[in-house]
Design a protein around this nucleic acid. Structure first.
Length: 370
RNA sequence: GCUGGAGUCGUCUAGUGGCAAUGACAAGAGACUGUAAAUCUCUCGCGCUUCGCGCUUCGUAGGUUCGAGUCCUACCUCCAGCA
């Protein structure tokens, strides 16, 4: 069983430590999205330097390239990528939702590789097998997202996710029985915006022999507080909860942590960075805008990341306008550091008992018009 | 000097009788939340009461024509070849 120590809790929020075979994660924590076993534009060393504690890779992408067998041959995700810290894998379930030409049946999902057209079938069992080969510390159950936000579709997807969860748990324990190193499984709570479905899903997942929970199918912070207030009290307190895919907007992190989420992952910070949209304490700015051409001040004076300590806005503007690779590197360092540090700060303020004050001042400054 | 070719939005470019005029780049702005994203979208002659209307544009000046970036004449500039 994955060990999760809760150091302090306050209502739903908690501060803890997840002990994985590759090291500890001090929670709440932001997990870097390393879909193809790399955080785009960043080296693992840069990730360590900006304060990241864990990364999350994607099973779907890794079975397409380089293949789960190869990652296993390399010694697993941590060895292969030289991350050497705690790792997560997402199951590939999300891709079933987002790819065209996917045929979903009760058995699993059939799809073609977007790279070379090869045909694949992913099932709860195959996702577990591939995730064990990839060898992350924490695996996500193979789930299905709803095809629309209608109640009927949400309910159907949730119920299938539950049936698949049973198969994931069985396969996971079968694989665990002969494993040299423990790996852990998180169930995924579905249900969309429907609180009755969320409660039903949380209840179902809570009853399973899993090590933690992913909360999936969340797309905006609107209503997320009520959803988490429905879900988290149902989930066992002593197991970690990962809020899947949320964290592009700082408010997601505050609402998530406040309402019982321990880890987050999101592609938003690095994707936005590559597109020139950079976080500051006063909101996001697009560094490509002409108004930064002569701005020789640091991107964010309060920030101690490599980008902000050493470079100015006019230089970043220039790098983006000339499409230099370094633009994306520096921007990614900053944005990833920003969200990682923000969650780390949330942790400190939860420990100090000053979370509400921190939340109010941070969000008041970041979103001045709301 | 002669012969041939060419001059179209900041740049390159499409366009051989019905066009405010193609495409690319540049420029300006927006989007992005378990990454088919180093991606995508919009604007890009001027002015308005902007699902439309008006004005001015394709080196310059004339001409032919209902209508000219497109045809004719002259001139200017550039390029190539020959002197």
């Amino acid at each position: 069983m994955l060990i999760f120590d809760i150091i302090k809790s306050n209502n739903l929020a908690r501060v803890g430590v997840i002990h994985t075979p590759h090291g500890d994660i001090e929670t709440p924590a932001f997990v870097g999205a390393a879909t193809r076993a790399t955080v785009k534009a960043l080296t693992m060393e840069q990730m360590r330097m900006l304060g990241s504690q864990a990364i999350l890779a994607n099973t779907y992408h890794l079975i397409l390239a380089p293949g789960a067998d190869l990652v296993q041959e390399a010694g697993g995700l941590a060895e292969f990528s030289s991350w050497h810290g705690p790792t997560f894998t997402d199951s590939g379930g999300f891709q079933i939702f987002s790819l065209p030409d996917v045929k979903i049946s009760e058995n699993g999902a059939k799809f073609k590789s977007h790279i070379d057209g090869r045909k694949f079938e992913m099932t709860p069992e195959s996702s577990m097998q591939d995730q064990w080969k990839i060898g992350a510390d924490i695996h996500m159950a193979f789930d299905q997202l709803a095809k629309s936000e209608k109640y009927g579709d949400m309910k159907e997807a949730m119920e299938r996710t539950h049936r698949w969860l049973d198969r994931c748990v069985d396969e996971h324990h079968r694989l665990a029985s002969s494993a040299e190193r423990m790996q852990y499984l998180f169930a995924i709570v579905q249900g969309g915006d429907f609180l009755d479905l969320r409660a039903e899903s949380a209840k179902y997942c809570a009853g399973k022999d899993v090590d933690g929970f992913g909360i999936g199918g969340v797309f905006t912070a609107d209503g997320m507080d009520k959803m988490l207030q429905t879900v988290c009290p149902i989930l066992p307190e002593d197991k970690p909860r990962h809020l899947l895919g949320m964290g592009q907007e700082p408010i997601d992190l505050f609402v998530g942590a406040e309402n019982g989420c321990d880890t987050f992952d999101c592609v938003g910070p690095t994707r936005m960075a590559r597109n020139g949209s950079l976080y500051t304490l006063d909101g996001r700015i697009n560094i490509k805008n002409a108004r930064f051409k002569h701005d020789f001040t640091p991107l964010m004076p309060e920030c101690d990341c490599e980008c902000c300590k050493n470079y100015n806005r006019a230089y970043l503007h220039h790098l983006f306008k000339t499409d230099e690779i370094t633009a994306k590197v520096l921007a990614s360092i900053h944005n990833e550091h920003f969200v990682t540090k923000t969650v780390a700060n949330i942790r400190e303020h939860l420990l100090a008992g000053t979370f509400q004050e921190y939340k109010k001042s941070f969000l008041g400054r970041y979103y001045p018009n709301s």
